[in-house]
Nucleic acid binder design. Structure first.
Lengths: 219, 219
DNA sequence: CGCAGTATAATTGTATACAAGTATTCAATT
DNA sequence: AATTGAATACTTGTATACAATTATACTGCG
């Protein structure tokens, strides 16, 4: 992933229209457009999304791996979705790994990676100043991904990446206040400064605070 | 999942022949039959596994979600596989969640679930006595799944279940000694006894020991 | 000999057709 | 009236055909 997409010069940068059927279904389930418990027949998805059954089946398999639907052989697929309980559970679990990621990352981060993190954080400051919430969400995700990457643990990256999809949809609660952006910024500043000081415990604490607040803000 | 499959009365109980293409490919990648870095063309898989492209494509999407292959649009799929580093990473990560699972499970387990855990542990004793390593592996998996389930955290179940696949293949190092079975049994006994006493800290310690030993035994 | 451009081959992406399994309906029988 | 059975409709599972994209090989030109 490149940083260019966050640079001030880039135009609005909307979602790509060519987003896969999998992503579209994922979004529609997570935003509640497709309801929990609903039966998904391949035929109906074909009609509603104007695609043939081949891509539909592939998307359903992916959703199943994500735990968003349950597929019963020769019977069909049922939407599981996320309950409030699930969301709470997820934040608890994510927190555990995010803290671990910070610990390992502070121990193992390279100079180059630290520069990237600094640059990313500076973009966060810039977009907070500009009150660009959309860009903040994207760069926020990227900031965390840099930490995963700096942990130099491929499995951890993979596991935490799988949480991001949920987070992205959950945290779209309408909260336009600048205060929100500033709070998020300061939480990330604390994390970033722990990296600069190579202070593992401070990093873990800062991330724990950030996670607790994220959870609180989301519900 | 039912317990019947572990009962002494059941015959040998081999793997189902109707195992999905996804599982077969997963196994072949994890056992090294399909090498890391290898390019997978859909055509070749069709021929080698005697199926058409539709199921092949579905299996590839699933493998991609698992992180076992990397699929580049219009280019093809490349096997990533697991390095020794990955396996070590995975054990570290699994340990964190297994310990958390035990903590929550001991706090939240129902009487009925505890009975199931007891029954399962007694099967472990039985198969250790009979030196049936195959059955021990299965019931070992089941023992852990009961803990996940008793944690009453659906996300945690989902995350930990995704590790089991790897574990199953990694731990097939040829170690026929009864000593191995007895060690595993005693480690599980410690965990089970912590459940009986509802001692969270003892459970966490017992699981940590079990995880450390599992890792050591696997490498 | 090297390079660019084009034609060909190979591979993935998508659509459709057919087979197999499952659910539903309705009539016949008890 | 309830239940069983067969026939029908529906849904998923698989195979194949076609379109779009990418890789490769070859030819012509400098």
């Amino acid at each position: 992933m490149s940083l260019y997409k966050f640079s001030p010069e880039t135009p609005s940068g909307n979602q790509p229209l060519s987003s896969s059927l999998f992503s579209r279904l994922q979004t529609d389930i997570l935003t509640g457009k497709i309801r929990s418990g609903e039966k998904l027949t391949e035929q109906r998805i074909c009609e509603q999304y104007s695609v043939s059954r081949t891509p539909v089946r592939e998307a359903l398999r992916q959703l199943e791996m994500d735990g968003l639907i349950e597929s019963i052989p020769n019977r069909g697929a049922y939407v599981i979705g996320l309950s409030l309980q699930d969301i709470g559970d997820m934040y608890q679990l994510r927190k555990i790994y995010e803290i671990q990621a910070v610990r390992w990352a502070i121990e193992r981060i390279t100079e180059k990676e630290l520069d990237q993190l600094e640059e990313t954080f500076e973009f966060m400051e810039f977009y907070t100043m500009k009150s660009d919430k959309e860009k903040m969400l994207n760069i926020n995700t990227y900031f965390h991904q840099l930490i995963y990457s700096a942990s130099h643990n491929r499995m951890l990256q993979h596991m935490l990446a799988s949480y991001q999809i949920y987070i992205k949809h959950i945290r779209t609660t309408p909260r336009n206040d600048d205060e929100y952006l500033h709070l998020v910024l300061e939480e990330h500043r604390a994390i970033f400064e722990a990296f600069q000081k190579r202070d593992v415990e401070a990093g873990a604490r800062a991330m724990e605070i950030h996670m607790n607040n994220s959870k609180a803000r989301s519900i």
